[in-house]
Design a protein around this nucleic acid. Structure first.
Length: 413
DNA sequence: TCTGGGGTCCTAGGACCC
DNA sequence: TCTGGGGTCCTAGGACCC
C-alpha cells in the first residue's frame, strides 16, 4: 500500500532550544541570529561543538569540531553549555504536537521524528498538513523545523535535509532523478567517512551514479552495506514507522577524564563510578544484564574493549563492578588513559531473580542494598549516597548517565 | 591548544561440536 | 604426515547515526 511519511527535523536543535529559552527569559539577542554554538566544557576535555547557529555555520564551524578551533574561525563566538533537561522538554513538546495528527509518531532521536500520515489527513492534502505542522512549530513552540514528505522514511529524511531552515520539501519516487540523484553521494544516509573513499575509488560521486552502479560490485567492496546503500540511492526502503518505547538492546556509560589516568586505583574509581550509574539505570528498567564490557581509550585515542558473558545475569552494582575490574586488569597494558566506558548487553527481564535459583542470602542482601540506595537517591538526589572511596579523589561518584526520559536513538531506519 | 556520549548493526576469526 | 565441513557461540573491532 502506498504510504505518506513525514520526517520532522528541528533546525539546529540544541542551539534553537537554548535561543528560545533565553528569549523567554528576557534575553535581548536571539542566539540563532549571531555566531553561537552549544559546546562541552573545555577544561575537562569535553570541548566540542554539539550544535551551531546558521551564522556560525557561515564561519565554517562544524558539529563535532573542537571549541578552540571553532574560536579560531570566529573569535566572537558565543559558547553555551548544554542543558539536556531543557532539550527533553522541547523534544516532548514537539512529539505531542505531532501526535495531534497521527498516533504513528516515531521519535527517531531527540530532535527528529518520523510520522505515518497515511489515512490521517482530515479534509486536507498531505502537503497542507505538513505545512501546518511546520507553521505551528514556529508559532506555538518557538523553534523552526524542516519537514520532508515522501512514501517512505528514507526519502522523507533525505527531503528534510534539503534547504534549511523552516522549509517543507517533497521527495516522491517520481522526483528522485531530479531531486536526489544530482546530490553528492556523501549526503546519502549511511554513507559515512569510511564508505565515501571506497565509492570514490569506484568512480561514484553522486547518488545517481550509486543508484546506477552494479549491486554485485558494491557488495564486493562494501559487503551488505553496499546493498543497503544501493537501495537507498534508488529510494527503496520499506521500514515501518514504529511508535512507542523502543526495546533496548544494551546500555552503557562512558566518560572522558579531565586528566590522564595512569594507575589502577583511579581507573577502578572511574569504573565503579560508571558501573554505579549504568547498574542503576538497568535496575530502573527492571532488567538484568548477561554481558559486561569495558572500553578504554588511551592518549593516542586508540580504543580497546574487553567483554565477558556472565554465568548468570545480574543487575547488582558490586557484582558487575567486580567483573569490570577483572576485564580492565586483563586488558590494560599500562598506557595512560583518557576515557573509560562500562557497557551492559544481552538484557533480560529481572523476573528470574525472584526465583529460588538465586534465593540465597548473599545475593538477596546485595539486592536489597542496591534497592535501598536507589530509593534514597530517587528521593534525596543522586548525591545522597556515595561511596567513601570517592571522597577527596577528584572523581565524580556517579559518572555519565542519561536523564530518565532521554529518548533512545537508532542508527538505522 | 587536540577531538563527547548515547546508541545500533555488521563482520571476521577462533573455539567447539558433530 | 592425515587433517572435511557445516553450524553455533563468543569476542574484538569497525562503521554509522544524532
Amino acid at each position: 500500500m502506498k504510504r505518506t511519511i513525514l520526517h520532522v527535523d528541528v533546525n539546529s536543535a540544541y542551539l534553537s532550544w537554548e535561543a528560545v529559552y533565553a528569549l523567554q527569559h528576557g534575553a535581548r539577542v536571539d542566539l540563532r541570529t549571531i555566531p553561537s554554538v552549544v559546546g562541552g566544557d573545555e577544561k575537562s576535555r569535553h570541548g566540542i561543538v554539539l550544535a551551531k547557529s546558521i551564522p556560525a555555520k557561515k564561519f565554517n564551524i562544524k558539529t563535532g569540531e573542537v571549541l578552540w578551533s571553532a574560536r579560531m574561525k570566529c573569535p566572537n563566538l558565543v559558547v553555551l553549555p548544554p542543558s539536556y533537561s531543557l532539550y527533553i522538554q522541547c523534544s516532548n513538546a514537539l512529539v505531542n504536537l505531532l501526535k495531534e495528527y497521527s498516533p504513528l509518531v516515531e521519535r527517531y532521536s531527540i530532535d527528529e521524528c518520523f510520522m505515518d500520515l497515511t489515512g490521517h489527513c482530515r479534509n486536507k492534502s498531505f502537503e497542507e498538513t505538513a505545512w501546518e505542522i511546520k507553521e505551528r512549530c514556529r508559532e506555538e513552540l518557538g523553534f523552526t523545523v524542516n519537514v520532508g514528505i515522501s512514501s517512505n522514511k528514507l526519502l522523507a529524511k533525505m527531503a528534510s535535509e534539503f534547504e534549511k531552515p523552516d522549509k517543507m520539501h517533497t521527495l516522491y519516487p517520481h522526483e528522485i532523478p531530479k531531486k536526489l540523484w544530482p546530490l553528492p553521494v556523501r549526503e546519502l544516509f549511511l554513507a559515512g567517512p569510511r564508505t565515501i573513499p571506497v565509492l570514490y575509488k569506484l568512480n561514484i560521486f553522486t547518488i545517481g551514479q550509486l543508484a546506477h552502479a552494479s549491486p554485485a560490485l558494491l557488495k564486493q567492496h562494501l559487503k551488505s552495506h553496499g546493498i543497503t546503500l544501493w537501495k537507498y540511492a534508488n529510494g527503496i526502503d520499506n521500514s515501518p514507522v514504529t511508535p512507542g518505547e523502543r526495546i533496548i538492546k544494551g546500555i552503557g556509560n562512558s566518560t572522558t577524564t579531565p586528566f590522564d589516568v595512569d594507575n589502577k586505583k583511579e581507573a577502578f574509581l572511574y569504573l565503579l563510578s560508571l558501573t554505579e550509574t549504568v547498574a542503576m539505570r538497568l535496575r530502573d528498567k527492571g532488567m538484568m544484564a548477561r554481558v559486561v564490557a569495558v572500553t578504554i581509550r588511551d592518549t593516542q585515542l586508540s580504543f580497546f574493549s574487553h567483554q565477558r558473558k556472565l554465568a548468570v545475569p545480574s543487575n547488582n552494582t558490586d557484582y558487575l563492578y567486580n567483573e569490570a575490574k577483572r576485564l580492565f586488569t586483563e586488558m590494560w597494558q599500562g598506557n595512560p588513559l583518557r576515557h573509560f566506558g562500562v557497557h551492559l548487553s544481552e538484557l533480560t527481564g529481572n523476573e528470574f531473580c525472584q526465583t529460588s535459583l538465586f534465593d540465597n542470602d548473599f545475593v538477596l542482601r546485595r539486592q536489597s542494598l542496591d534497592k535501598s540506595i536507589d530509593t534514597i537517591r530517587l528521593s534525596h538526589g543522586s548525591g545522597a549516597v556515595i561511596r567513601g572511596a570517592f571522597l577527596h579523589s577528584g572523581i565524580p561518584p556517579l559518572c555519565g548517565g542519561v536523564h530518565e526520559s532521554f529518548p533512545n536513538m537508532r542508527s538505522l531506519l
